[in-house]
Design a protein around this nucleic acid. Structure first.
Lengths: 343, 343
DNA sequence: TTGTAGGCGTTATCAC
DNA sequence: GTGATAACGCCTACAA
């Protein structure tokens, strides 16, 4: 049987009242040094652990922020988790994470768990458009939340985002400046706003540069593990191939390069590739050769912004500004080559 | 201001008592269909969210298990997180994760958070020897917990582990069968039991095979990101090099291969490498060439065992058996070559 | 300096 | 079928 001592137990053992114990435990003034010592003595003897559920019930504060993921699988997200941790620690709050593995029902459960007193607010990670009900729920009761990497067209919510459109444009322009004219785009899961934005950025830049992409220059994927292989095979089957690829993210890009390599294509000689995310942590242990050129996300700053926003919301203020957007930064590797003009 | 409705609010709106509302919400019998409808109506109107803190206070059950990590950085751990999720869902419980980023104080805080009513039990992830205080605390109050990938010599605790000693032995034997005689071991952080075990397995197998490793055949690392580079350089400086490496884990192995490759060594022609963990998820997007031979961990089974154990503990029974050990499985890639005997 | 009493939102017991 | 009432462990006036 669980034998967790309560304040009452301490009070009995120390021969004082509950109030006195509470005061001592919370480091408040107005208790005799002698008494204080007795209380601490009793507390440690009983291995006292405060019942935060009960405490939260009366103070309605837990000092904890919940973070809701779709999945822990994506390395860029776990990277961001580390950054969030860092800032949270600096601000003196704690973070607990959960992953709903794409199950909307689970997501709702976790949100309710947090709303119901387990956390003071939540950070929601970029996810599907099916999130509207969740968001509406949160807004209805005015529970503090911040969204990372996801926009909701009709709703004005506190969010931290990356300029995916701009980043995509920048990637295309970079390839164009290297001399590429025929550029294809490998999409992510277009049910996610992130993927839509990067795709739109690609379209926009191509149009502005007068490079009309053909319909088969959009290679669609669902962003799942292994989708890069499929995309690569699709590409390999074509009779005329682009000279460069702008790929939704680094994971897919790596998978594709792997498969293209296997088919005998050299990178960047036969195909230039630019990704998105700049997964440095992982890059460090990948056997040589390819250091993927990629649009990097300023994760540190994003994490900081998210923590600051949620904390101001928790303390009852509207964050200023309500929404922050960060610019991706091009990180050059060795997977894009200068194309000599052959025309 | 937060406006979360309570049962009392619903009761007022529906014109019934708190008790009745509670019964309806918990799907209990003995309420008129009419009344039930009214209650649900009022609940949804007020966006009712149950206060799990208050509920936990009276039922002392949350339906949630806490999982405490040292860090989310290790891919093998996030992989395991996914597996835990899967089994937890099957069993109808939810999981929340936290990472203490090597900060012992943080770890204690999270444990207390969970013990104090936020979870029914915790799963502790393989970590440092400094964990004894935490474990003792948990045992003192009889709070349900399971340890994954960590042993405590003097304490008998419910744990799920991998036969690291046996796995290391198997790796060495494999290399020996391929003809290798001079094998070096790159260690992990020897403050972790896992690293000590794999090192001991290496020693044991070498001894049994009559291959006495020299003292500089142990290349020590602290397991942190980038340590593989350092290890590789240490290796490159030596005048006589081993023909094969047994590396603590895949991450370090990849880093080393990267650096060795850069220095002009070919793998497996000039150096055979075997790792530990078999990070398949990551392997899939690594540009060709090297598919690391590695000792794989049966994560699915481990996750299942951990969930089952914690649940039986939560329900008041001792898990049977108290401790489960799983055998690593050799996964052949293309980083180990057959050594022709030159003697 | 210390103690008493009330209430946070929920569930459970037991009358009505 | 329904509704008081008491607890769970904690904090915080306020009284002694």
């Amino acid at each position: 049987m669980l034998i967790i001592a309560s304040i009452l137990d301490i009070a009995k053992l120390a021969g004082v009242s509950k109030t006195t114990v509470s005061k001592v435990l919370n480091h408040q003034y107005g208790v005799h040094a002698e008494t204080r010592k007795k209380v601490w003595q009793a507390a440690s003897e009983l291995h006292y652990t405060p019942n935060i559920a009960a405490r939260a019930l009366v103070t309605s504060k837990t000092g904890v922020i919940g973070v809701v993921y779709d999945s822990f699988k994506s390395p860029i997200y776990t990277e961001l988790a580390g950054q969030l941790e860092t800032w949270a620690r600096k601000e003196g709050v704690h973070l607990v994470f959960c992953s709903c593995n794409q199950q909307q029902a689970s997501k709702l459960h976790y949100i309710q768990y947090f709303m119901g007193g387990a956390a003071d607010g939540v950070i929601l990670f970029g996810s599907a458009e099916d999130d509207y009900p969740v968001i509406e729920r949160l807004m209805a009761v005015n529970y503090p939340f911040v969204v990372i990497e996801n926009r909701y067209e009709q709703l004005q919510v506190p969010n931290v985002l990356v300029d995916n459109v701009g980043g995509a444009e920048q990637a295309v322009r970079y390839l164009q400046e290297l001399g590429h004219r025929h550029i294809a785009h490998v999409t992510g899961n277009l049910r996610h706003q992130v993927a839509v934005d990067r795709c739109n950025g690609f379209k926009k830049a191509m149009q502005e540069l007068g490079l009309e992409p053909a319909s088969d220059d959009f290679i669609r994927t669902d962003g799942s593990i292994g989708c890069g292989l499929v995309a690569a095979r699709t590409l390999l089957e074509r009779e005329t191939r682009p000279t460069a690829l702008f790929v939704f993210n680094d994971l897919i890009a790596y998978e594709m390069m792997d498969e293209l390599h296997r088919a005998g294509l050299r990178i960047p000689e036969d195909m230039s590739v630019i990704g998105f995310d700049h997964l440095v942590g992982l890059l460090s242990f990948k056997p040589g050769i390819h250091h993927l050129t990629s649009m990097g996300q300023p994760l540190r700053e994003m994490a900081r912004a998210a923590i600051e926003m949620i904390l101001s919301l928790v303390s009852g203020q509207m964050p200023e500004p309500m929404s922050q957007q960060f610019k991706p930064v091009l990180q050059e590797g060795n997977t894009c080559r200068i194309l000599e003009s052959k025309s």
